[in-house]
């Protein structure tokens, strides 16, 4: 463990907590893409199949359980409890356009052709594009609540910090994982224009408005 990875995990945890708090306190999931949340739940499910078979540390196991519980709790809040506030009309990204290519690529490019490894690889590729429905929704509605933009900033920062972690681990222990690293770069690049808007607008107290 290093401070970059710990920082990344805490940014990820913060993002998940911000989202749950936003939905719970405003009792509304307006502006949030349920499709992205489905992809995140899928990602964690496919990645943490080894939750009971591969014990790394208490921290690792606890965080996996927290991520899984939070992902499904968010789906419950969006599709059951506050279903009436879910914005179907703006959350229209076709999930199959993301799930099928990620699954196909995971079958072709992986570290090992085994169930657990292909599922892990699928989760890595899926996570890289999981935010697209959310970014698509923000561009369609043309704006986002400030709490939603804080959520996106924390979520985007998490994988950016992981990239620093991989650089650090490469030079300090010779560890590298090209699949996770390249997918992480793609994932972080997708946030770039949002990061620009967040830093130039939201941090100045303005609302996040996307040029329509």
């Amino acid at each position: 463990m290093n401070i970059f990875r710990l920082g990344g995990d805490l940014a990820h945890l913060l993002a998940i907590i911000i989202l749950l708090l936003k939905i719970w306190t405003t009792r509304s999931c307006a502006g949030i893409s349920g499709k992205s949340q489905i992809l995140f739940a899928l990602t964690f499910t496919a990645r943490y199949l080894d939750l009971f078979t591969n014990f790394v540390s208490v921290y690792n196991s606890v965080m996996k359980v927290v991520y899984l519980a939070a992902a499904y709790a968010t789906l419950y809040l969006m599709y059951v409890k506050f279903k009436a506030t879910y914005d179907h009309n703006h959350d229209t990204f076709r999930l199959e356009f993301l799930i099928l290519p990620a699954a196909g690529l995971a079958l072709i490019i992986n570290h090992e052709f085994s169930i657990i490894e292909v599922m892990w690889t699928f989760s890595i590729y899926l996570e890289a594009v999981a935010i697209l429905p959310q970014l698509f929704m923000v561009s369609k509605t043309g704006e986002a609540e400030s709490i939603t933009s804080h959520y996106l900033f924390a979520l985007g920062s998490y994988r950016a910090l992981y990239i620093v972690n991989w650089v650090y681990r490469y030079y300090s222990e010779g560890f590298y994982d090209m699949i996770a690293t390249l997918a992480g770069v793609v994932q972080t690049v997708l946030y770039c224009d949002f990061f620009y808007l967040y830093i130039t607008k939201v941090l100045k107290g303005k609302k996040l408005q996307l040029p329509a």
């Binding site: 995990d9 690792n60 590298y176």
Partner: peptide
């Protein structure tokens, strides 16, 4: 190779 295989990251 691109191997890592040790899944110690989240």
């Amino acid at each position: 190779a691109t191997k890592s295989m040790n899944k110690d990251e989240l």
